[in-house]
């Protein structure tokens, strides 16, 4: 038995999608003999996560994040591969497993709309087989941590999105899960609500030791919460490691800032740079260049030799820019 909390081996999901053709004859034909197309959504990904880690699971829309998350929560059968979470195979959906995990989806609600959240918590307590004392204690702790005392008796339909998300978190944590899956938890929240939610996740993780797997389109979420990210692209795992190193490893270019002590720096630079180098915004002789990372050292040596450089620094591009490039499908490896 593996020591890790989450152990994923070669997980693969192929969807059989019926092919639809336009036109009446084609649709009559496909009624009798359906043709299917295989769509490879997740291609043999493997990773392991230790208990208590907070891991960001990132990738573009359609990269396979949600499919993977659904397999790990037992909502979806994989086509092949294995996963062991807290000693269970998720898609066997054993009650003992489901009691150990929980999921929050930013775009779906598990609250009952017409009544105050306390009543939803009571229903969940019964479903998870908690004693009322136990359930009440957990709810009190969470209410304290989320500062939502004033919300307990307010019907959910009258709440703001941020208020509702606090309720969703309490609902998801009422049975003290060991593993928490967060699918876009901050979607649609305003900036300060996002910040409070992130703070809560950090605090709760520290207090309870819960393992967290998080997907988000907001890089701020990932940067603040996760020491480690898993990046998937078109169903393949392309990076697993800490976030800072991601940009070093994956960014195909470097940013060079420099100050030149001449009148028309842009023209001078054009003259001695290779054609694929980009000159970004420049003011008062301060100029930023975007250079192919493999050629950077060579080009800088050439610049220092041929132009009057006052100041020069080399940086990795900001993480958002790298992620953006990857999401747009540019080859990075």
């Amino acid at each position: 038995m593996p020591d890790s909390q989450i152990e994923v081996e070669n997980l693969t999901k192929v969807y059989h999608v019926p092919e639809r053709e336009a036109g009446l004859t084609a649709s009559v034909r496909s009624f009798f003999r359906r043709t299917y197309r295989d769509v490879l959504a997740v291609k043999g990904i493997s990773f392991s996560i230790e208990a208590g880690e907070i891991v960001g699971f990132i990738g573009a829309n359609g990269a396979g994040k949600t499919t993977t998350l659904k397999m790990l929560t037992g909502l979806l059968q994989p086509s092949s591969g294995s996963a062991t979470i807290a000693g269970f195979t998720p898609w066997e959906r054993q009650p003992a497993y489901l009691r150990r995990i929980s999921m929050v989806m930013g775009n779906k609600s598990q609250m009952l709309w017409d009544i105050p959240p306390l009543d939803t918590f009571r229903v969940l307590g019964a479903i998870y087989g908690l004693s009322s004392v136990e359930a009440a204690r957990t709810v009190n702790e969470l209410v304290e941590l989320l500062q939502m005392q004033n919300l307990l008796t307010k019907p959910v339909r009258n709440m703001s999105l941020g208020e509702r998300m606090k309720c969703e978190l309490t609902a998801a944590l009422i049975h003290r899960p060991e593993v928490l899956f967060l699918d876009e938890p901050t979607i649609g929240l305003d900036v300060s609500a996002q910040r409070r939610l992130r703070q809560f996740i950090v605090d709760y993780n520290r207090q309870s030791g819960v393992t967290v797997m998080l997907t988000s389109h907001y890089m701020a979420d990932v940067m603040e919460l996760c020491n480690r990210v898993i990046l998937i692209q078109q169903g393949k795992l392309i990076y697993d490691g800490d976030l800072a190193a991601l940009s070093q490893q994956l960014a195909p270019f470097k940013l060079v800032r420099l100050t030149l002590n001449i009148d028309d720096p842009v023209r001078a630079l054009r003259a001695c740079l290779p054609p694929d180098a980009e000159i970004l915004a420049g003011m008062n002789g301060d100029i930023t260049l975007r250079l192919d990372r493999t050629k950077t050292a060579h080009i800088i040596a050439h610049l220092l030799n041929s132009l009057p450089v006052d100041d020069l620094s080399i940086e990795n591009p900001p993480i958002e820019a790298v992620i953006d490039q990857i999401y747009q499908g540019e080859e990075v490896l």
Binding site: K70, T73, G74, L75, R93, P95, A96, Y97, L98, R99, I101, S102, M103, M105, K108, S109, Q110, I127, Y128, G129
Partner: peptide, 18 residues
């Protein structure tokens, strides 16, 4: 249609019963 059936499947109790 809404996909909230996910929550029913996540419960540690018989789905048909719920």
């Amino acid at each position: 249609w809404q996909g909230t059936f996910d929550f029913v499947l996540l419960r540690p109790a018989n789905t048909q019963f719920l």
